[in-house]
Nucleic acid binder design. Structure first.
Lengths: 114, 114
DNA sequence: TGCATTCGTTACGCCTGCGTTCCATTTTCC
DNA sequence: GGAAAATGGAACGCAGGCGTAACGAATGCA
C-alpha cells in the first residue's frame, strides 16, 4: 500500500523525526548503525557480518564495530553459528525491539502532524 | 493533511531511506547536522547560532562546527548581521537546496514502495 | 565614558568511527 | 592428512565530533 507524499511532506517528516531524535538524544546512532539495526530487524534472518557488509556496501570492520557498539547498548546480540563456526549470527534483543518501536512511534507521530 | 502510517510502514520507510543514503554515501551528515540543515531550510529565517542551539537543545559550539563542516560542503552560508554585528545569519545555498531535494525524493520514493 | 552582557568562535583533551592490513579459526577440497 | 579459501576480529594511525572553558568583538546601560 504505497504512500504518496509531496516534497514538502517528505522533508517535513524527516525534519520532525530528526529534530525529535536530536532533542531527546537518548542514544544517538550513526546513520550507518541505524541502517544496520533496521536491516537486522526488518529483513528475515539469518544475518552475518559478511552479508550485512555486502548488503550495505560497507567494509566488514564497519559491521563488527557497529555490532560492538550496539551490543553494549543491548540493541543486538551475537551468536556463533553452530553449523559453520566461522559465521556469527546476529540476533535481535528485547532492547532493540523497544528502541525501534519508539522510533516507529516517532515517525508515525510526525506523519500525523503533517 | 496528516499521513497515517502503520508501525511497519513507518519503520520500513525509515529503513529504506537510511539504507539508500548509506549505500550511496555521497556525503554523510551526522543526525545533528541533518537536523540543523533541515531546520535552516524548513523554518522561516532569520537563523542564528544561538537560536539554533536553543531550538535543537545543543551547545553553541555544536552549531558552529556543524556550520563549518556544512559550509565547506557548500550546503549553507554565513553572513554577519549588519544591524547587530555580533550576530551571524545562516543563509541557504543552491547546493543545500539540491541536497535536500534529493533527500526528499528518496523519502518519497521509499514511501511509494511501501 | 566605563563596565557588564551577549554573541560567535577557538582551544583543549577526549572519545568514537573510519579504512587498511594482518591474523586466528574453521571449513573445503584434493 | 595438508593446502587453500572463507570468516570474523584485532591492531594501527587518522580524521572528526564532542563538552567545557576560555576568548575577542560588539552592544547596551548606568
Amino acid at each position: 500500500m504505497p504512500i504518496e507524499l509531496t516534497a514538502s511532506q517528505a522533508l517535513g517528516l524527516w525534519h520532525g523525526v530528526s529534530l525529535d531524535q536530536v532533542r531527546h538524544d537518548d542514544r544517538d546512532l550513526t546513520l550507518r548503525q541505524m541502517a544496520i539495526l533496521l536491516h537486522i530487524y526488518l529483513v528475515p534472518p539469518p544475518h552475518t557480518v559478511r552479508g550485512l557488509a555486502a548488503e550495505l556496501n560497507v567494509t566488514k570492520p564497519v559491521i563488527t564495530r557497529a555490532l560492538d557498539t550496539m551490543g553494549e547498548m543491548g540493541l543486538v546480540d551475537r551468536v556463533r553459528d553452530a553449523s559453520d563456526r566461522r559465521n556469527v549470527l546476529i540476533k535481535r534483543t528485547v532492547g532493540g525491539a523497544l528502541y525501534l518501536e519508539k522510533l516507529g512511534d516517532r515517525v508515525r507521530e510526525q506523519g500525523r502532524k503533517l
